[in-house]
């Protein structure tokens, strides 16, 4: 199997000849990793995923999934991928089991195998006792799990998840993450996901690409991206009324110091090692540290650094907005 499971080169999508949703992006996803697209709504995440799952045709550039071209060999791509869309696509009038079997039929999985596998998957996402209930009675978390199960019915080698926890409350979101990890381990898949939740990208993804206005502006492991900011933030206050900026700057690993009205904001690599060194250096000169805090940079700071703004909803199409509204409403219905 090739190392690069997904490969995109100059992938571009222009809507209505003017709206550039995805702008010449290049990336590759390695076998077995969880790769995340992080960005605000309207950044081009869903458009990218829709091109990769062969639902949208790229305007320019090319991409392949497991070596199959997404345009020329679209049907081969469809056979080996699983998709968990942003919306709740399960039919509300059917039961959970009926929905999974419908998916199985669409993939042409032999009935006997499908029946066994459907039960196995329902077991895995803990929906067995609800399998004969209509989906309209399901909660948001249950619907999401059903979508996960449907996306796995063909034993995909690559699973695409579009905003897998959109509209779920914090607990359900954490539970969904653990299902995703469990499924990945169970089936040894490669995962491609999009999200606009920073903590989700941080918690789940091996590598992330930050996408904004259709372009990838940063790519790497969450820890790499955070390290690229220059390390942790240490804040220190001392009892004495003196400027110790230069003293702190001389400590090993310290990269930057700013005196903010008597409290010092220090940027340093591996803060947990550096902080004691700073205290030690200050004490040796007779200063007393009265307060110290250490914060690791979050993806939020990374995001701020690269886009110049906090993550928030960008302008987006009415259509996408409406679809999202429906999803949110259903998620919160019960």
């Amino acid at each position: 199997m090739s190392e690069e499971v997904i490969k995109a080169e100059g992938l571009t999508k222009v809507f209505n000849k003017s709206l550039v949703a995805v702008d010449h992006i290049n990336f590759s996803v390695k076998s077995g990793e969880i790769f995340g697209f992080l960005g605000p709504n309207g950044a081009g995440k869903t458009t990218t995923i829709n091109m990769l799952i062969t639902v949208l045709k790229p305007t320019e550039g090319k991409a392949s999934v497991l070596g199959y071209d997404i345009v020329k060999q679209a049907n081969d791509v469809r056979k080996v991928i699983g998709v968990v869309p942003q919306e709740y696509t399960a039919d509300e009038d059917l039961t959970g089991y009926e929905n999974i079997m419908l998916c199985a039929d669409l993939y042409g999985i032999p009935r006997e195998i499908a029946k066994k596998r459907a039960l196995e998957l329902l077991e895995l996402v803990e929906l067995v006792q609800f399998k004969d209930k209509r989906v309209e009675t399901y909660s948001g978390g249950m619907r999401r799990r059903l979508e996960l199960a449907c996306g796995l019915i063909n034993r995909p080698k690559v699973l695409f998840l579009d905003e897998p926890t959109l509209g779920l409350d914090v607990q359900t979101r954490a539970a969904t993450w653990s299902y995703i990890r469990k499924l990945k381990e169970e089936y040894g898949m490669t995962l491609f996901m999009t999200t606009h939740y920073l903590e989700e990208a941080d918690a789940l993804c091996d590598r992330i690409a930050i996408i904004d206005h259709g372009k990838i502006i940063a790519l790497g492991a969450p820890s790499e991206l955070k390290d690229s900011l220059g390390g942790d933030i240490i804040t220190i206050s001392i009892k004495e009324n003196a400027d110790v900026s230069e003293l702190i700057r001389s400590v090993e690993h310290v990269k930057d110091v700013r005196n903010e009205n008597g409290s010092y904001r220090i940027k340093a690599e591996s803060g947990e090692v550096t902080a004691p060194l700073i205290i030690e250096a200050l004490r040796r000169k007779g200063y007393t540290v009265t307060r110290l805090s250490l914060t690791e940079p979050t993806l939020n700071e990374v995001y701020l650094e690269y886009t110049g703004r906090a993550i928030r909803d960008a302008e987006e199409s009415k259509e996408a907005f409406r679809a999202q509204r429906i999803t949110l409403r259903r998620a919160r219905a019960r």
């Binding site: 469809r78 991928i81 869309p85």
Partner: peptide
């Protein structure tokens, strides 16, 4: 979209 992403 989901149906379109399957090989049906």
């Amino acid at each position: 979209d989901k149906v379109l992403s399957t090989p049906v």
